[in-house]
């Protein structure tokens, strides 16, 4: 039934209508924990992106070989394998950035969003669609992380990607650890408000 989905639809679903952070509210831990700068957001986003895409493609490739009774263990093993690979690669080639992300790279293994996409999409669809679905979801997470990181870095330390743009530090509060909750909560409310606003507008027009 979903065969008719185009690449664009698959992508936009991950980034907008089913954004893993703001809409599905899954994988919130890093969104609150290490989103203090745009760079952290990008790094973890990229890591999740690769794990999601690789896992989706792997499961989709072998979907006929997976015994239905051991479906979930197989997913877990696949994700754990790719997380290990990404973890090793990051530790080897980007030691500085890796040290900043700490334990969160390893914790990608417990992200509900990845298992969910494997269960709901990759085990049923062909490799190409699974790939684009993985790309969409991975990008959705990346975009979410970058947006939160942007807000916190700009308001907290007055910089973007380490470059001083404001020249002063508006509110130190935003890079304090607990501000992650407030920023995510306020942004969720903001997106809800936009949605309601547009629905009302459309309702008036029709």
């Amino acid at each position: 039934m979903t065969n008719t989905k185009s690449i664009g639809q698959l992508l936009s679903r991950g980034i907008l209508s089913e954004n893993p952070i703001f809409k599905l509210a899954l994988s919130m831990c890093p969104a609150v924990g290490i989103s203090t700068t745009v760079m952290n957001g990008v790094m973890l986003g990229v890591a999740v992106f690769f794990v999601q895409v690789f896992s989706s493609v792997t499961i989709s490739l072998f979907k006929d070989q997976i015994h239905p009774r051991i479906r979930i263990p197989t997913y877990t093993l696949t994700i754990a394998t790719w997380v290990t690979v990404i973890d090793l690669v990051l530790a080897a080639y980007m030691p500085g950035a890796y040290a900043k992300m700490g334990i969160f790279v390893k914790l990608i293994v417990a992200f509900a969003i990845i298992t969910m996409r494997l269960e709901m999409f990759a085990c049923k669809e062909n490799v190409k669609d699974s790939f684009w679905d993985g790309v969409g979801m991975g990008l959705g997470f990346l975009v979410g992380m970058v947006v939160i990181g942007f807000v916190r870095e700009l308001l907290g330390s007055g910089t973007i990607l380490g470059y001083d743009v404001l020249g002063f530090k508006p509110l130190l509060f935003f890079i304090l650890p607990c501000a992650g909750f407030f920023v995510v909560g306020l942004m969720m409310a903001f997106f809800n408000w936009i949605e309601v606003f547009y629905k009302q507008k459309r309702g008036v027009r029709s």
């Binding site: 696949t78 394998t81 290990t84 690979v85 090793l88 530790a91 080897a92 080639y93």
Partner: peptide, 17 residues
């Protein structure tokens, strides 16, 4: 298969690390 992938990744990255 998982062990092969992880082992290979470990061997490739260990030296660089």
């Amino acid at each position: 298969m998982a062990a092969t992938v992880m082992g290979a990744a470990f061997i490739f990255t260990n030296k660089a690390k």
